[in-house]
């Protein structure tokens, strides 16, 4: 596109867009170290809000809940999603119906899935709690894992499976020594993606966690804090949460050079 682009205009566009994207985030980070905690005046550098954060038992409790949800739902989703990806890629006929089912969790609006699950659990008289959040998170997590692994398998040269057999390996050995190692980066990348999605997920958790205080997840806690009384601690919390997701996803991206779904 360079032949028709005006370089000065392009530079202006990029500067404006990046300013728009990064100023709000940077302000949060700066604020988390502001002694006074208010956006209007810089009163000096301090990490006291981070300290306050770790002493806040509500926040720490919510963080622990989130970790439990993310770890368990990621583990389940990774196994189910990987098997699904291999199954779908092996299959000869690609069913449109099947593709829709696999794709749906990624595009269905969160609010719809959230209320559907809430009604479903309530009508079946399932007590809501962390376990229902986990069950629900696996739904979209497995779809994302599946999509990452599939994109890897699409570029997979299946003739290595034959090569391994031709060289004398039984199928179990081929799976263990050839197929799994080739897939592994994508599986890990998918798991990391699922993990962050689960860490950050708010709406579905909000509807399926029930009313109890002990099943509040971190995003639910953040929502409540923003809505009902902002304390400066939230800046520190925001900075940590944001850094965590970005670091994990950058790692995932690196592992899976094929890119994340949607990219």
């Amino acid at each position: 596109m360079r032949s028709i682009a005006n370089p000065r205009l392009m530079l202006m566009i990029l500067s404006a867009v990046f300013a728009f994207l990064y100023i709000p985030i940077s302000v949060l980070f700066a604020l988390s170290f502001n002694e006074g905690g208010l956006p209007t005046a810089w009163t000096g550098f301090s990490v006291k809000w981070y300290g306050a954060l770790f002493r806040n038992s509500d926040i720490m409790g919510a963080a622990l809940n989130t970790l439990v949800v993310a770890v368990i739902s990621t583990a389940l989703a990774t196994i189910l999603g990987t098997l699904l990806a291999v199954g779908v890629e092996i299959r000869r006929r690609k069913g449109r119906f099947l593709e829709t089912i696999i794709f749906a969790p990624m595009i269905i609006p969160d609010i719809v899935l959230a209320i559907a699950l809430l009604s479903f659990f309530s009508l079946l008289n399932v007590t809501l709690g962390l376990h229902t959040v986990i069950l629900s998170h696996v739904v979209f997590n497995l779809a994302f894992v599946c999509s990452v692994v599939r994109s890897r398998l699409k570029t997979f040269d299946w003739s290595v499976v034959e090569a391994s057999t031709d060289l004398g390996a039984p199928m179990v050995v081929t799976l263990w020594r050839v197929v799994l190692p080739v897939m592994m980066p994508a599986v890990i990348a998918g798991a990391l993606l699922a993990f962050t999605l689960s860490l950050d997920e708010f709406i579905i958790a909000f509807f399926t966690a029930g009313a109890g205080r002990d099943s509040i997840t971190l995003p639910m806690q953040i929502f409540a804090m923003i809505r009902f009384g902002v304390t400066p601690e939230i800046n520190a919390l925001a900075a940590i949460v944001m850094t965590l997701s970005v670091v994990i996803l950058a790692l995932s991206q690196r592992l899976n050079r094929g890119g994340l779904p949607g990219q």
């Binding site: 699904l84 969790p105 739904v139 599946c146 499976v161 081929t174």
Partner: peptide
């Protein structure tokens, strides 16, 4: 591909069951 598993449906069953039940 089919050499890996002649019945790929077995591999997909758990995930599809999950999606059916919870989506």
């Amino acid at each position: 591909r089919r050499m890996i598993d002649r019945k790929p449906l077995y591999l997909m069953t758990p995930a599809l069951a999950w999606l059916t039940a919870f989506m």
